[in-house]
Design a protein around this nucleic acid. Structure first.
Lengths: 203, 203
DNA sequence: GTCTATAAAAGGATAGAC
DNA sequence: GTCTATCCTTTTATAGAC
């Protein structure tokens, strides 16, 4: 386990700073200060600030399972419960940050209004990866879910629940907004599972 | 109908600029350029940029029904359909902007990471007002919805659906992401309405 | 590859005449 | 209330020595 190289140090520092302060409010000086590097080192590795952002978004994309999904699913085998275990992970993040937590991808997606196509595509890919993890669970749930259900739509709806809940919890500084969203999604799943069960076993 | 005063001109210009470019990426010079005013005029009315933001958020708060809700509900009487009529309004906005539409409140809520308490409170109040409009519909729906249903949670879930759908549609530049979210919410309502109907008329 | 110094521009805000 | 000019700070990025 060698010390992280310069590029990695910059990406990790920028990851946290963009998450806490946003992209526009994070200056190159902020990144240099946190990494204890000089401007020369940063600009030797990255052509400019946007390239740091791209590297950060690639890191989120590549670390989705290792840093987020796998820890959330540890010890949870039921595919439906895995979905709610992932949401529980976000609840923990909200509490850990005193209800200031924002999804780093969601926040960047809404902050950057005229984003470079490369950046926008990486934001989209991050969403797709997250939704893909949920989609796995829905596929694993097999015929516990109603036949003909649009699983892609439902997986996206889980992301929507997370993003909407995080947004409202942060704005109101109250985790209850997140909890009630998850609770509504739980009702949604319960009703879907009940519907499938009724069809499978019609008395 | 007299010409709008300086304050109103500034607020209207800032409203659009913050929506299109975001708060940090909108400069005072942008606002002056669009309003054809000089710096002296703006700073005569507002102490600083943040005060313009506050005025913009107050304008959104005060114009919720006049500018958004009432037009969406025109000709729609059924309370449940009013909810989906409001969502249809957002769909229209997404199409109108070539899938670049972002909810102005949601975008500001995620862009401003260390917002002044006054600003954050105004963001929260805007969400509360929106949710309140949905809550009216749910109350008007009366016993078509299941008894004991958490209407507050459901109203917030409608906002979540809108925000999550808008976020994904914009990031992917594809209205389908919004449509599938609304469709999932429609399923949710259908299942709730069916559950209530079963209870009311158990053969 | 890393250092310091600095260029070059943008942004928020103010001064003081009118 | 409005005008022009400008101050001051921040910020991105570069130059050139080591």
């Amino acid at each position: 386990m060698s010390a992280p190289d310069v590029r990695t140090r910059i990406v990790m520092a920028a990851m946290e700073l963009f998450w806490v302060k946003g992209y526009n409010s994070t200056s190159i000086a902020d990144i240099l200060s946190r990494t204890q590097l000089n401007a020369g080192s940063l600009y030797h590795v990255f052509p400019g600030k946007q390239d740091v952002l791209i590297a950060v978004l690639e890191a989120y994309r590549d670390g989705l399972y290792e840093n987020l999904v796998d820890p959330a699913w540890e010890g949870v085998d039921d595919p439906v419960e895995r979905i709610f275990a992932l949401l529980a992970r976000y609840r923990w993040l909200i509490l850990e940050t005193d209800c200031t937590y924002g999804c780093p991808i969601g926040s960047l997606a809404l902050e950057l209004h005229e984003a470079d196509p490369v950046v926008r595509e990486l934001l989209a890919v991050n969403f797709t990866g997250w939704v893909g993890a949920i989609l796995r669970c829905l596929d694993d749930a097999g015929d516990r879910l109603p036949p003909g259900l649009d699983k892609q739509a439902l997986a996206e709806f889980v992301l929507t629940t997370m993003e909407g809940g995080v947004m409202q919890a942060r704005t109101h500084r109250d985790v209850g907004y997140f909890d009630r969203g998850v609770s509504a999604l739980r009702d949604h799943f319960d009703m879907l599972l009940a519907r499938a069960a009724r069809r499978a076993q019609p008395a």
